[in-house]
Design a protein around this nucleic acid. Sequence first.
DNA 1: AAATAAACTTGCAGCCACTGCAAGTTTAAG
DNA 2: CTTAAACTTGCAGTGGCTGCAAGTTTATTT
Lengths: 205, 205
Amino acid sequence: MTPLDQDAPLGRRDLRKQQTRAALTGAALRLCSARGFEHVTVDDISAEAGVSSRTFFNYFASKEDAVLGDHLVEVDAMRARLAVLLPTMGVLEAVRRAVLLVVAAMEADRDHWFLRMEIIQRSPQLLPRLVLSNAEAERATTEQIAAHLGLDPVRHGYPALVVATTSAAFRVAATRWMAAAGGLSLGALVDEAFTALAAGLPDPH
Amino acid sequence: MTPLDQDAPLGRRDLRKQQTRAALTGAALRLCSARGFEHVTVDDISAEAGVSSRTFFNYFASKEDAVLGDHLVEVDAMRARLAVLLPTMGVLEAVRRAVLLVVAAMEADRDHWFLRMEIIQRSPQLLPRLVLSNAEAERATTEQIAAHLGLDPVRHGYPALVVATTSAAFRVAATRWMAAAGGLSLGALVDEAFTALAAGLPDPH
DNA sequence: AAATAAACTTGCAGCCACTGCAAGTTTAAG
DNA sequence: CTTAAACTTGCAGTGGCTGCAAGTTTATTT
């Protein structure tokens, strides 16, 4: 009598796992927000979460991972959405709409993201790592777009260019979102950036 | 009678310093290219260069820095060029021409750059750090453009957007350059990317 | 319910990146 | 020549991270 109504096989064990995982990320975000990333040790985080430091590394490959998180779910959702949108509109417009999925996820997890970004802002070494976590996703998206256009992703630069620039545009929007401390809508900022991109980045006045 | 004809004060000491530095980067690139970044220790690099591992850290803040290098010179040159170009043309065009300085520097240091990129390709952890080394430069350029346009870089997203997207476009061009193993001109690839950017990234056919 | 297997946690020992300190050595300056 | 500054180095120590060999908890089988 295993409850499989939803999508996740929930045993007592798996439940406790994602509970421990949440405790670790929570502890990491809280402590790093208070003291700064480099003044928090893995031992501190583990102690705060009530597990051994060795167990910490059973959940996260690095201290940075605990702060930055996974985001694999959103990546998969975005790929699925892209597959639907690409045949019916231009590439840039399809990417814009697909990105709105990520926007929704971030606005839903708003509190954690503000903590994350505050920590990242004070410890710039984390920003690149955040980009890296997107790197694999970027590569996959590049191939998806190249396949749709029937282009060789190596010979043609277009797919990689679209992905890299839109990704950068998104990062800028997210940074502004945090700088405004939630006073602006992330979706609106993303839209603004994509509009400028589609217009060829003309000088404003 | 200090020889100051050029721009650098060259004493026996400074000469030996940049000699040691070159030996360290050379050793780092050679060993990492042969064995892969994570299978090379700082001790290995130091021994190959004929200094102690402690001395290594007097020259580089991290193992990654030894592989990735500085590029501060090009950054300064680019800023100066930008200051000249900005008043006489559009922002995007000015950035495009300023970037050509970096292109020239990379094509001149071609061999080292191919090694670097091969190493980075096999050890993706390095890619973020490469982005980070550009992060400070990006911030400075953003402020420069914001000042030129008379915009507040926080309230207005345009300067940051231009810098982030052009930087991404450059990265794509550099990646293709390496993939082509020098069969293509980096300058041509950069031009192609900027042209697509200025046109608003329209679908190709 | 008991026995067996699988998964999870933990301590331990150890590698390696990296740092501060206190020498010793080399080069420049007075 | 003397003094001061710069450079190198060893040493000891912190902290991130891993493999291993327990021990403990949960799932599975009979």
